[in-house]
């Protein structure tokens, strides 16, 4: 009975959170990762993005609904040994963790499954980059050294002993918060970031290794704050989990 009440409570919480999307109008922008040769702007269609990352509470509700995704039942193809390792048990967060912290130690498969369970999906890299380019006041703050330094400051700090709750930092121009300064986030096409794992290789000379246009080399090295996101994502395999890696969901606009 208690279990059912818990599920109900969590589901209600999930429902409330699930409606917290920001609608982001589409547009063209110059991405750090060019689509092809030449630095043509990328077109992002209008989409909706979660205002903040998926929380422990929301993911717990999902895992209870779909026990296939419990850490003691998940197929090792879909998640490595660190999956949800910080929870007290497969079905319980434990007293040390807060429900409103972003969920971390989740693999791409798990994140994808969660979003699909809501009828949604993970954002694409371009969608994520587009939303993340905004500061609190302008849609594209990437030229602002102060904004860049704030992002770099997060990289400069070691992992905090306790992750803050989601939504604590001010929302950006689009009404989305925590794209910077909290956690790394999965994107749908993380394995489309065809950067070579030796970050000094330039110009994609290795055509045979990457059929077609060769490896993407970051277009504007000045946008190193974004570069570091790409570097991080390109170090991952789909089943990997890390202590600082979570996600949020997106959907096409209607």
């Amino acid at each position: 009975m208690r279990h059912l009440l818990l599920i109900a409570a969590v589901l209600c919480g999930t429902a409330a959170a699930a409606s917290e999307h920001a609608a982001i109008g589409g547009g063209q922008f110059s991405s750090v990762l060019p689509q092809g040769p030449g630095n043509e702007p990328v077109t992002v269609a209008p989409f909706k993005l979660d205002r903040h990352p998926v929380t422990n509470a929301e993911f717990l509700a999902f895992v209870l609904k779909q026990p296939r995704w419990r850490r003691d039942r998940v197929a090792t193809l879909f998640a490595d040994a660190g999956y949800l390792a910080h929870w007290r048990s497969a079905t319980d967060l434990g007293g040390d963790l807060r429900p409103q912290q972003p969920v971390t130690r989740v693999s791409w498969f798990a994140a994808k499954a969660y979003c699909e369970s809501r009828g949604e999906r993970l954002p694409t890299w371009y969608e994520w980059e587009y939303a993340a380019a905004a500061s609190e006041t302008v849609p594209d703050a990437r030229g602002d050294p102060a904004w860049r330094q704030r992002i770099l400051d997060w990289y400069a700090q070691p992992s905090p002993p306790v992750l803050p709750d989601v939504g604590r930092s001010p929302a950006n121009y689009y009404g989305v918060s925590d794209l910077h300064g909290l956690i790394w986030e999965w994107v749908l096409d993380f394995n489309a970031l065809l950067v070579s794992s030796d970050s000094r290789e330039q110009g994609g000379a290795d055509r045979l290794r990457f059929c077609g246009e060769g490896a993407l080399s970051a277009a504007d090295r000045e946008h190193y704050a974004v570069l570091m996101r790409i570097a991080f994502l390109s170090s991952l395999e789909a089943r990997y989990t890390t202590a600082n890696l979570g996600f949020r969901c997106a959907q096409d606009a209607r």
């Binding site: 770099l152 970050s199 000094r200 190193y224 570069l227 570097a231």
Partner: peptide, 8 residues
């Protein structure tokens, strides 16, 4: 270390 940005 040679991870981007390498200088950092």
């Amino acid at each position: 270390c040679a991870t981007a940005p390498v200088g950092m």
